[in-house]
């Protein structure tokens, strides 16, 4: 089986059709996933932003909620919403 050697010795399988576009071989030590970091970092920033945004949509946008301490803020925050 092709992958068995692939896994243990980390040799690229030449028969894999999807590799026909491959222009270079990047091994474990040369590979620095900065792109993944950039993308995941971006996702994380979006999450943080949405988390703050959620406060306005879900609490200020609605009538008094089950969390008692917030009620006074809702009345105070109507102007902002």
């Amino acid at each position: 089986m092709s992958h068995a050697t692939d896994e243990s010795t980390q040799i690229q399988d030449p028969d894999q059709p999807t590799d026909s576009d491959q222009v270079r071989e990047i091994g474990h030590d040369e590979f620095d996933p900065v792109g993944a970091l950039a993308l995941i970092g971006l996702y994380f920033l979006i999450l943080v932003f949405l988390w703050f945004f959620m406060y306005f949509v879900e609490f200020l946008g609605n009538d008094p909620t089950v969390v008692s301490g917030i009620v006074s803020v809702v009345t105070g925050g109507v102007g902002l919403a």
Partner: peptide
């Protein structure tokens, strides 16, 4: 999310991809 994106990136760089995005 990180592992899968990093694996895709490995493929993309082997296919000649460059840059942060």
């Amino acid at each position: 999310a990180f592992t899968v994106v990093a694996s895709m990136e490995h493929g993309a760089r082997q296919r000649g991809g460059e840059g942060y995005l």
